[in-house]
């Protein structure tokens, strides 16, 4: 891993440390209880919650903030962060869908068994599709493009839920061109430094929705491997070095976000060194064709 990537992850770890953030959040909560809440203070409550990876508190803070602004605060149960929110320095929060307990436990276990049984089909992943080269400074991921277990299930789920995902993520109703679908595993030392899955303008053909389904042992033996979704200024690609939403890769959790937002996967530690104890995911990109659809001006 490059030193710059290591330093970046150290910053994420420090800023996202739940133990450090807890007393700060408690102070802010006390301040909000004492004084008339301002949008700025509520936004800070939201920002500290999401940076700490507290998704339930993130959602509650967004609802509270919406109500203070005279809105209903009613949005899909699947949405942790809805489209259109901005941080104090003007970058957009990545809209985020999270669905916990996505599969039945026995289905997840079968998927995990399949992954373990096909260990020899996993290869070291390339850095990106434009530059087909393995680069351990940028990424350490094992990937299997040919998994079979539950593949149809995931494809059908996306087929049936694409419209809702588009709506939550603030995307117009584009036609799905195709879906990249692979199984990944981060063993000890796995990571993927800050990147975006699509650098093209929004109306061009390319990846539009990135989704991940985390799975593995019911009680994980890995630590780390968090998803850091960085606040991004979409027009310029400038991303925040301070504000992000942290998502724990909890087994049986599905997450989705627009592919243009910068993100990273923190270093994974697997002390026992076993492949089966790694951080597994089904990792997918839903691609769209070039379009002339009515994209929100906020993009």
């Amino acid at each position: 891993m490059l030193e710059t990537a290591r330093q970046q992850f150290d910053v994420f770890a420090k800023l996202g440390n739940a133990q450090t953030n807890a007393p700060l959040r408690a102070q802010l909560k006390a301040k909000l209880a004492r004084e008339t809440p301002t949008p700025e203070a509520l936004a800070m409550q939201l920002n500290l919650a999401r940076r700490s990876g507290d998704l339930a508190a993130t959602r509650s803070a967004i609802v509270e903030l919406a109500r203070l602004n005279g809105e209903t605060g009613d949005f899909s149960e699947k949405a942790i962060v809805p489209f259109g929110l901005e941080n104090p320095t003007g970058q957009k929060l990545a809209p985020l869908i999270v669905i916990d307990d996505f599969l039945q436990p026995d289905q997840m276990n079968a998927l995990h068994r399949h992954a373990c049984d096909t260990e020899d089909e996993f290869r070291k992943a390339n850095t990106n599709s434009q530059s087909p080269a393995y680069d351990p400074d940028k990424r350490e991921t094992l990937v299997n493009w040919h998994f079979t277990e539950m593949r149809d299930h995931f494809e059908e789920f996306i087929e049936q839920n694409l419209a809702e995902f588009q709506c939550i993520l603030g995307l117009p109703a584009f036609v799905k061109e195709r879906m990249e679908l692979k199984m990944t595993c981060h063993i000890d030392g796995g990571f993927f430094r800050v990147h975006a899955d699509n650098h093209e303008p929004i109306t061009e053909a390319g990846r539009a929705i990135t989704w991940l389904y985390y799975f593995g042992e019911q009680t994980p033996r890995y630590t780390g491997g968090e998803l850091f979704l960085l606040d991004t200024e979409l027009a310029t690609g400038v991303r925040s070095t301070v504000w992000f939403t942290k998502v724990e890769p909890k087994p049986n959790r599905l997450v989705a976000f627009p592919s243009w937002f910068y993100h990273a996967v923190g270093p994974t530690q697997v002390e026992c060194g076993e492949f089966g104890a790694g951080r597994f995911a089904i990792s997918s990109h839903i691609r769209k064709p070039a379009d002339g659809l009515g994209w929100s001006t906020e993009w």
Binding site: K14, L15, T20, E40, A41, M44, R51, N87, V242
Partner: peptide, 8 residues
Amino acid sequence: MSMTTGNF
């Protein structure tokens, strides 16, 4: 932590 910048 600054509530403006978010930095530690």
